[in-house]
Design a protein around this nucleic acid. Structure first.
Lengths: 224, 224
DNA sequence: TTCTTTCCTGAACAGGTGTTCAGTTCTTTC
DNA sequence: GAAAGAACTGAACACCTGTTCAGGAAAGAA
């Protein structure tokens, strides 16, 4: 007598798993990582606390997967925006602006994913998350360097610095909330994008043009 | 019969308090903030756990004061370096380089002060710590703008971004250890300083010169 | 329907660490 | 030297959450 999972059961299991992850994501978006606790997440996902452990070996695994998921989404958005740009420099501008808009749109989530204190060790997935985005930005910088638009440089270091600049300026504790006013949001995104482009060596006049190019299409993402 | 603290006692109390803070600082420098636990710190300071509470109402207060202390030291160093510079642009370069050298010299401590997860709430003192440094850098950028060396900009935002860039690039999880090799350390400091100066609008050629000016004197600080 | 396997539940458990406090030691005053 | 106040000790306490697990429910095989 062999027990076999019906297709229906497989689907339900997947749905539950997804529901738990979604609950965790919502909790993080609303209250930061500190709100991602097993019991509350279980309640939100309509399961018992113990059930969470049938899907995730530990809280660390749950959060790690949450980080990976959010990170995947962001990376995809950045790639999409950059690939749609007409040239390597605009691609870089688009990538930076996209990151900026994303973190501004979901500040608590971004802060949680990136840097908020968590009681379990999620260093590995946070590093992986950073690596993905930094790698993407670094390769865009590289492309611009190869195209002769930027001076040669340590692109990995530069990309890391850009990520840090964006996060500290936009979601760090000193960041002012820029979401209440669309115009302010646009200005902020423009300002940090300009800063980032100049940092890697784009000439000022050219940078201004690229920023406008990059920010305009990205505006449509706001609120999405 | 009134009890009055003798001068000697006052001195001893102050020494104890300072010993506890120093123990906390050492613990943080060696093992990060997670190593700053009441019991171990008490042992290191040669007092009982309960004694710590005669000097600090709670662990949060202890850590907050630690953060404030380290922050004061850093701010003083930055001011000293910037004030010694010949002009506003070099002052900015010196300030940035000093921050860079400091965080590289004490990576664990810097990471702990700034961003490492702590089980108690030290948000307020972390914000204060950032504000001090960011304020200092912002005022240096301001000075350079007023001198006509930089384009007008949101200096607060720029300074915040610079701080984030430095930290992410130098002590963040993606940072490579640059302390093992003096030459590498110098190159890294130069690279991030250059990045920072360009970000706020210093022209490339001029930036290179400023970086060299700023990094040379700062090298003597390494190891101090 | 009945047996077996899997899945789910949620109260109890466990572990680690900040904090307390009754008892002890040291200081000051007279 | 003795009384009184202050400081110190460190074991016990308290609290908070992640994790477990015995019992029960649901789903598949026969």
């Amino acid at each position: 007598m062999v027990y076999r999972r019906t297709h229906q059961v497989v689907k339900r299991l997947a749905a539950r798993r997804s529901a738990i992850l979604t609950a965790a994501r919502e909790a993080a978006a609303e209250g930061g990582m500190s709100a991602v606790q097993i019991a509350p997440v279980a309640v939100r996902a309509n399961v018992a606390a113990g059930t969470v452990y049938r899907y995730f070996p530990s809280k660390a695994d749950l959060i790690s997967e949450l980080i990976a998921e959010v990170s995947r989404d962001e990376l995809a958005a950045v790639r999409r925006a950059a690939d749609a740009a007409p040239g390597p420099s605009s691609a870089l501008a688009a990538a930076v602006s996209t990151v900026a808009v994303h973190v501004l749109s979901q500040r608590k989530l971004a802060w949680g994913i990136l840097a908020e204190p968590v009681d379990v060790d999620v260093t590995a997935s946070r590093i992986a998350s950073r690596r993905e985005i930094v790698g993407e930005i670094a390769s865009r910088i590289d492309a611009a360097v190869r195209a002769g638009h930027l001076p040669a440089q340590d692109t990995q270091l530069a990309a890391t610095a850009l990520l840090g600049a964006l996060h500290e300026a936009l979601v760090g504790p000193l960041a002012t909330d820029a979401l209440d006013d669309p115009a302010k949001l646009r200005d902020t995104v423009q300002a940090v994008t300009l800063l980032a482009l100049r940092a890697v060596g784009v000439m000022d006049a050219r940078a201004r043009g690229l920023v406008v190019q990059a920010v305009l299409p990205v505006k449509s993402l706001v609120g999405a």
